[in-house]
């Protein structure tokens, strides 16, 4: 049992993201309402974003903005270990933008589906499609 405690303490962040991700996946697969599926998709995306950002973390480092950064940078040398990894932040900045864009388009599609079928329940929509 005792050998699992350090494992938990160093890895529990990943487990939180996996739990979040599975909540989103469950919502996308099992929920019947289209808006709930979209909410699930957003939870899934948020879990991925948190996962990437936590990869960039370093103990004892600060945010990736250089201190004493004015002027043209011929001052003291910058040590990479003092700053957390900026790349996951950049990648997730763009991923957040994509998630907003997909959310907007998904909601627009849901509105169009509701205008045509007057319902957002997947089984009722499928039934209407089979009848026609």
């Amino acid at each position: 049992m005792e050998q699992y405690i350090p494992l938990f303490l160093t890895k529990y962040n990943y487990w939180v993201y996996i739990a979040l991700m599975m909540i989103g996946l469950w919502a996308m697969i099992a929920k019947n309402n289209l808006v709930k599926k979209i909410v699930g998709m957003n939870i899934f995306q948020t879990a991925i974003i948190l996962f990437y950002v936590s990869i960039g973390a370093k103990y004892g480092a600060t945010i990736p903005i250089l201190q004493h950064g004015s002027g043209h940078g011929h001052e003291a040398a910058v040590r990479a270990a003092d700053y957390i990894n900026p790349l996951p932040h950049v990648l997730m900045l763009t991923a957040i933008v994509v998630s907003v864009a997909t959310l907007g388009v998904a909601l627009a599609l849901v509105i169009r589906i509701h205008q045509r079928h007057r319902t957002l329940e997947e089984d009722e929509i499928l039934e209407q499609l089979r009848e026609s």
Partner: peptide, 14 residues
């Protein structure tokens, strides 16, 4: 992290 100031003079690496 190390070359940003030299290349772009922007302190915010992101």
């Amino acid at each position: 992290i190390e070359k940003t100031m030299e290349d772009t003079s922007v302190p915010n690496i992101v």
